[in-house]
Design a protein around this nucleic acid. Structure first.
Length: 679
DNA sequence: AGCACGCCGACT
DNA sequence: GTCGGCGTGCTC
């Protein structure tokens, strides 16, 4: 800004009407620039305040402050100290420094700004996710003995060469150790010593040894628990900091302070840990970036992978995207040359991946009513039966409640109510199917397409499946693990473990078999990325199975049975090659001009305002505009398609216009950038 | 969300 | 001539 040319320290102060306390302001750098806690779009910019002399010492960049803003007291972060402000503005004094603790570092602020730009959202919304709520007592708590992270075990004993099992991995490791910041995408080989936590730890230790900090972001509490077991073993619980919203506000803030104070150089956590103020970040690692838990469910709906991409650019840090499968976005980073691919040795993958069997033999199951009820293909039943002699068997089913949707058994046409056209379902009370909208009981249902008179459950939930499997496998212990009843691990004893995607417990020595039962149901969801999501869920579960060959610490013979109609996803699972699948998906999207080969924005709100918003948008003519789509309650939705190169200009235009509309008191339009699940 | 400032009507 | 209606726009 041009004010650096302004010679007078006092420019901008109204000297004719001194403010209270102006005589007592700080002598050096008397102006504090503050981002305020306001969700109002046109107030999403810094405001300047005067620093009273008594707050001078505490008013450092990065601290929480209180300010007076248009009649009310607001919270905020002090971002800068300046010699003077813009001329012609009466500055208010800073009301208070909430705590001298520096909780917002310069690179994190820069990242938050970049994230807000990318997602056309407010900086404050990002900061709220980035900086955990203050817990005042934690600030005075004396740090429990051992100071900076000290590894009890020197880095690098068992499994020190896991990265070397990938083409380019040795060079990648060397670069990390040498203080460089390489970027890579890796699809992890399962059943290696210590599994993926050991692989990520190996990369982290190389960077720690180079004197820099490391950040590891995982999708959820289950993965975090698994990673922390490994870290506790190798570094001790004091050797790193763990940041997860699920740990609760107090431990979260305690750990956050250790990071902010530079007492922890290795940080692991869930999505918002991507903003952890790690000092001198050398490497950020994201595990399983295709998992939807990495997307923040609140505005501006940022994704941890994109946060880290921006942050690594800002801090010149390395990035490692590691996963059981491969997201199309990760594949794009390889294809564009931004990241290198660390590809597994094919021979190694063949030996350590489980054997995968595709079972599409519906008619076999029909002969056995028990298997039919549990919708278990005969091949799956045979494999499970055999595997149960050696260990636990995982059964992955689609996420849904107790109430299944019904279809015609012969032609698969969804069964609908004759009165209101609502979907028919079986309640938990056994009996005739009923409409789940109007409740009308369909006594003698027949298919409107083919006249067939038998129904089949399109899918049933984990609880119901567990019940049915109990009947198909008498005398076998059956446990269910779902989002509602999470279970992190199961013992290495024969049992059937029914779980929904993402909630699969880990078996101590791997599962003897994994049955993937609800592929058709998961595939039935209309959506551009359905095939990709299904493959990722399958790969995630398949990687919990034992390998084809045994290793010295794990038996072999692992088998995966995938049931359902043949599909590209199924073929990719059988070949255990998510990278090739992601590449072909990406090629297809590029040809069609669809995400993630292009970027998208969704604008939605009251019809008139939204249409006006779109026509007032000052963006390149080449940006494709689709709409309006009429939604419920008179709302309109528009979709914009634009290239990655056009991205910054488009999101900047959306942000600027949103601010203009907000200032003009137009109703709120909601904007989502690169939303998942709309297309 | 609150507060100032501003341009019209009603009243001491 | 002055007080005050609330409509519009800004808030460091």
């Amino acid at each position: 800004m041009g004010e650096s040319l302004q010679p007078s320290l006092l420019a901008g102060f109204d000297l004719s009407a001194p403010l209270p306390g102006i005589a007592n302001m700080a002598r050096e750098l008397p102006v504090a620039r503050v981002v305020i806690d306001s969700a109002v779009p046109h107030l999403d910019r810094p405001f300047d305040y005067l620093v009273p002399a008594d707050l001078d010492a505490a008013a450092q960049p990065g601290v929480r402050v209180k300010v007076r803003f248009g009649g009310q007291e607001l919270g905020g972060f002090l971002t800068e100290r300046l010699g003077h402000s813009d001329p012609g503005i009466k500055l208010q004094p800073l009301r208070a420094v909430v705590s001298p603790e520096v909780v917002l570092s310069a690179p994190v602020l820069a990242t938050a700004r970049a994230v807000a730009e990318r997602y056309a959202g407010g900086v404050w919304d990002v900061l709220r996710a980035a900086v955990p709520a203050r817990m005042a007592r934690m600030e005075t708590e004396k740090p429990s003995e051992s100071g900076p992270a000290a590894a009890d075990n020197p880095p690098g004993e068992p499994g020190d060469h896991l990265l070397a099992e990938y083409h380019g991995g040795t060079e990648y490791a060397r670069a990390l150790r040498a203080g460089k910041s390489p970027r890579a995408v890796l699809s992890a080989v399962p059943n290696r010593p210590g599994d993926w936590p050991a692989l990520l730890l190996e990369a982290a230790e190389l960077v720690l040894a180079s004197g820099r900090g490391v950040l590891i972001v995982v999708p959820d509490a289950r993965d975090l628990a698994r990673l922390c077991l490994t870290l506790d073993d190798h570094l001790g619980s004091k050797g790193y900091a763990r940041l997860s919203a699920e740990d609760g506000a107090t431990p979260r803030y305690r750990n956050f302070l250790r990071v902010a104070r530079g007492q922890a150089r290795l940080v692991v956590g869930t999505r918002n840990a991507a903003f952890a103020p790690v000092k001198d970040l050398g490497l950020a690692i994201i595990w399983d970036d295709a998992d939807s838990s990495h997307a923040e469910p609140r505005a501006p709906y940022h994704h941890a992978r994109e946060v880290l991409l921006l942050r690594c650019g800002i801090e010149d840090a390395g990035l490692l995207l590691a996963a059981p499968g491969r997201s199309a976005e990760a594949q794009r980073l390889i294809r564009s040359g931004w990241a290198q691919e660390l590809e597994a040795e094919r021979r190694l993958l063949r030996a350590h991946a489980p054997r995968v069997i595709a079972a599409s033999d519906e008619f076999e199951a029909e002969r056995d009513p028990l298997l039919h009820a549990a919708r278990l293909p005969a091949a799956a039943w045979r494999e499970a039966k055999a595997a149960l002699a050696h260990g636990p068997v995982l059964v992955q089913v689609a996420r849904t409640g107790f109430m299944p949707a019904l279809r015609c058994e012969r032609c698969r046409t969804p069964a609908r109510c004759t009165a209101c056209n609502g979907p028919l379902a079986l309640g938990d009370a056994r009996g005739a199917p009923a409409c789940s909208w109007c409740g009308l009981v369909a006594h003698d249902w027949s298919c409107v397409e083919c006249g067939f008179m038998r129904l089949r459950a399109a899918s049933i939930g984990a609880d119901r499946t567990a019940e049915e499997l109990g009947r198909a496998f008498p005398n076998i212990n059956v446990v269910a693990a779902t989002g509602a009843k999470p279970l992190h691990s199961v013992p290495d004893t024969p049992a059937l473990v029914v779980a929904t995607p993402g909630a699969e417990p880990v078996a101590a020595n791997g599962y003897a078999a994994v049955l993937l039962l609800d592929g058709d149901r998961m595939m039935a969801r209309e959506g551009l990325r359905t095939g990709e999501e299904v493959l990722n869920r399958w790969m995630g579960a398949a990687c919990l199975a034992r390998g084809r060959d045994g290793t010295k610490d794990r038996p072999g013979g692992g088998t995966v049975v995938v049931a359902g109609d043949p599909s590209e996803s199924m073929r990719a699972l059988v070949r255990f090659d998510a990278a090739a699948y992601a590449q072909s998906e990406l090629d297809e999207r590029r040809a069609l001009g669809l995400p993630p080969a292009v970027r998208t924005a969704m604008v939605k709100g009251p019809a008139a305002t939204t249409d006006k918003f779109i026509s007032a948008l000052e963006i390149d003519q080449e940006v494709r505009r689709h709409g309006p789509v009429l939604l419920d309650e008179g709302e309109h939705r528009w979709l914009l398609f634009f290239s990655y190169a056009q991205g910054p200009a488009v999101t900047a235009a959306l942000r600027a216009l949103r601010a203009r509309f907000s200032a003009a008191k137009e109703p709120i339009v909601s904007i989502r950038i690169d939303p998942d699940g709309i297309l």
